[in-house]
Structures are given as structure tokens and as C-alpha cells.
Write a protein that binds this DNA or RNA. Structure first.
Lengths: 248, 248
DNA sequence: CGGCCCCTTCCGGTCAGCGGAAGGCAAGTA
DNA sequence: TACTTGCCTTCCGCTGACCGGAAGGGGCCG
């Protein structure tokens, strides 16, 4: 196993996640599986550099320096930039929560989210990872993912709500419909009271680079209008990406 | 000086900045001041963990794992979340580029930005740091900053455009006006063709925690309307922050 | 072909990192 | 008050992980 200082320091950072934004030293040590004294020394070093900050309570939090380093990641610089204005248009037109997501291995990674004042119960925010089979953007991304990813996802269809699709055959049918109709939907499969529609975003080469989705309380009416709005936005993003593809 | 592995690894990450999003191994090594072989080993370790990714060209870029770690930083989780819907309203109402910024020592750190399709030349995006004396949000934050910060900023008024305020006395007068009138303005002081208005955002305790600004091509007309819209949004954000202050 | 630049791998000496142990502080319990 | 439990911090001597010069391999150019 890895016992290098570097990987230990990184594991210490890895102790933070969406549900653990502030950790005491001992909590970090425990989660990273490091002796307290070691964690103390490493955390001190990370803190000195700015990768960790200390809250007023003395707990550790991710530091500003890591925040702006993270913003340099290509996930966002290219895609998010190009998409930003279209997301607003979409929000203005639908007043629904808007999502932009990419596939990260066998999960959906939310790249941007745009929520209004009042919104249906939505778990995701930027940086969140969710299973592919229970979200609209996930189904879209899965439909255009390589074979081996599909196989892995199909092998692990965990139930999230009573409506989550857990039979591989049924999900495959849905993926085929994404191909045919150009969009995916969900109905309370991730969280109760939330339905979603999503469409693929195509990059310069015509390949699917992201998915664009919105979450609404109900899909029985206005579905066509939503799909149309999504597709306009998606193709707009695609065109913008083509223009700036030099930077990637 | 620090010669610990950890700090070297961090320095390697620090080689990336807004102007250097993709670096070859040797470029990283050069910028971090490390021997090539050492940089190679460390970069490999960072890559294995996901802190660095490799672009198709073989160059290194900041990895996704760092990206979502960064999103956990408190700069954003609290403030940005609370502000998000109000920023949209503001954008919808004004169609101007909207900025949310905090003070980071003696600089302005842009926390969020919301730009339309067509926009005046604006340099900032989320994660950018700019000097305080040449931006609207900067002047607001400076007006409510501790004495010693003001002193340091006044000591280093660098010129950015011909219109940048570089005389300490004149900037002080402007700061006093921020106090009196509750908002700050700039006129082509950071980039030509861009004017701005900004107001403070007050947190639970009444202290100024951030600044909210918009950038427009011209301030001669409609200033009052813009200030009013900004103040509505700012007080909305403040109220939201109070509600969720338990999380901080 | 030779020159250039980049990336990658190797290996033994040595010094940075390790972590158990001990001490200090703050809160809760009796 | 004294005891417990939980944190954080510091110390120090042993040791194995890190260091980095050197050598080798690929791609590109003239």
C-alpha cells in the first residue's frame, strides 16, 4: 500500500466531502486512517500553504487556495463558461432548477446548477456526484457512454426511491429511447416530488460532452415545451464550444 | 526553507494559475523550482490520486478531484448558495454582468460572476483576484475593511487604466462616500469601456461580509435604478444568510 | 544523421517523516 | 473538589521513504 507522505496528505484532504465540510483534527485523522500525531503535522503543513483553513471553532475546512485552484480545472473553464449564459436563458424561460453535468467514470458529476428561490427538493449542487441510473442527465450521459461503463452501471442499480429503475432491461429500453427521441426523463426516481428532463450537449466533433437537464415538480404537462427549450440551449452551448475549442 | 515533501507537492500545484492552466512536466518543475526527476515523481503521485489530470497532449491540468474539493470551501458553500437566486434576479432585471466578491486580505476575490451573452469587457471570473482600488466591489469592501488593510492598499495604488484612482486622498474621499451613500462606483478604472456600481452585503451580525456589483458600459443614466436593484438583492442575500447562519 | 527537448526509470546514501508516549486544556459527570 | 472523556499539541530517536544526478528512450526539426 501507499505510505508516501504525499498520498497521506492527500488522503487527509480526501476526508472532506459534501457531508463533511468541517472536521476536527481527530475526525480527519480517523477518516483518513492516520495516527493523530501524523495528521496533526500534515494538517499544519496544509494549513500553512492555504489548502486548509481553520474555522473560528478550530475545526478545519477546505482553504481558499484550494478553491481557486479547483476553479482552474478544465471541467469548468471550458464547458461551464460556454454554458453559463444559456443556463440563465433556460432558467428565465422555465423557472425550473437547471443542471449541467458530465460523466465521471460511472457517475454523474454536476458541473453547474442554477436554482430559483422556490424549488422542488433537489439534492444536487455543483461538485456533487450521483448515480447515473436515477437522474435525467445521468441517463443521457449513460446512453452515449462506452459499453463497459454501461455494463458496470447496469450491474449496480441501487434503489433510491420506490420509483428508481432497478431492472437492467427496463433501463436499457430507456437508453434506447434516449437515442431515438433525443431526451431522457425521470419521475421521482432520485427524490420524491422531483421529475426531470435532460438532453445531450454535443461538442465540436459531434460527440456528447455533457448533459443539460431541468427539474420540475410534474411532467404531465408542458413536456414538449421543456424539451424544445432544452434543445435550443444545448445546441447553443455546442456552438459556443466549437468557437472556443482552440482553448479546449 | 521548507523542504518537506508535502510543501513541494503543494508548490507543484501552485505552479498553476489563471494564466497557466495546462503545464508540461518540465514547466511545472521550472515554475515550482524543483528538479525534473522530483517533479516527475510527485506529479505522478498527484495524478494517481486525481489532483492532476493529463490532457490529451500529455500536459498536466488540475484534476476533477481537486475541483470538487475546492467547491467544499466555505467561501462558496454558504455565501454563494444564499446569493445565487438573487444574482439571477439581478441579472434578469438589469441584463448586466453581475459580480459577487469578498475581501481576501488586501485583494478582491471574485466568488461568483454571472455574465450574459453580450457583455462589456470584463476581466473577472470566479476565483479571480483583483486590486481593491480599481473595482466597484473592491471599494465597497475596502470601505469596511480594518484600518491596516486600508493603509496597505493606499500605499500601493497601481495604475491600470488612465482613469484608475492613484492618489490616496482621492480614494479616501470615495471611501467616505461609500459610507455616506451606501454604494461605490467606478468609471473605466479597471478596463476601458466598463463602469460599475457596487453595494455591501451584510451578514447576520450586520457586518459587511461581501460585495455585490454590476458592470455596465455607461453610468450616466439609470444609476439610481441600478443602486436600488442592487440594494434589494443585497438585503435579500443578507436575510438568507441569517436564516442559514447555523451552518455558517 | 545529429541536435534538441521532453519524458521516464534507476538506485544507494541520508535526512525527513514517523508515531508512541506524555502533557495540557475544556466540558461534562458525580 | 476529583474523576472521566474528548480534544489538541509537543517531543524525540529510529528507520525507510525521498532525493536527484545520471542514463536511456521517444518525437520533432533542419
Amino acid at each position: 500500500m501507499a505510505v508516501s507522505v504525499t498520498s497521506r496528505a492527500l488522503d487527509l484532504l480526501g476526508a472532506f466531502d459534501t457531508g463533511h465540510r468541517r472536521l476536527t483534527l481527530s475526525a480527519m485523522a480517523r477518516r483518513a486512517g492516520l495516527p493523530l500525531a501524523t495528521a496533526h503535522r500534515l494538517a499544519g503543513e496544509l494549513h500553512r500553504w492555504g489548502a486548509l483553513d481553520r474555522a473560528a471553532s478550530g475545526e478545519y475546512v477546505i482553504g481558499r487556495r484550494l478553491w481557486d485552484l479547483g476553479l482552474l480545472a478544465p471541467v469548468q473553464s471550458g464547458l461551464r463558461h460556454a454554458a453559463s449564459p444559456f443556463l440563465h436563458d433556460l432558467y428565465a424561460a422555465t423557472l425550473a432548477t437547471v443542471h449541467l453535468a458530465v460523466r465521471d467514470d460511472a457517475e454523474v458529476l454536476y458541473v453547474d446548477r442554477l436554482a430559483g428561490h422556490v424549488s422542488v427538493p433537489v439534492v444536487s449542487e455543483a461538485g456533487t456526484r450521483l448515480p447515473m441510473h436515477a437522474t435525467g442527465v445521468g441517463k443521457v450521459l449513460l446512453a452515449y457512454a462506452p459499453e463497459n461503463v454501461v455494463v458496470r452501471v447496469l450491474a449496480g442499480l441501487t434503489r433510491v426511491t420506490p420509483y428508481t429503475v432497478t431492472e437492467p432491461a427496463r433501463l436499457l429500453t430507456q437508453l434506447r429511447r434516449v437515442w431515438a427521441e433525443g431526451y431522457a426523463t425521470t419521475g421521482e426516481e432520485m427524490s420524491l416530488g422531483a421529475c426531470s428532463v435532460a438532453v445531450p450537449v454535443r461538442g465540436p466533433g459531434g460527440s456528447v460532452v455533457a448533459a443539460l437537464g431541468i427539474v420540475v415538480p410534474d411532467l404531465r404537462r408542458g413536456r414538449a415545451r421543456l424539451v424544445a427549450a432544452l434543445q435550443v440551449a444545448a445546441s447553443g452551448i455546442g456552438r459556443t464550444l466549437s468557437c472556443t475549442s482552440s482553448v479546449q
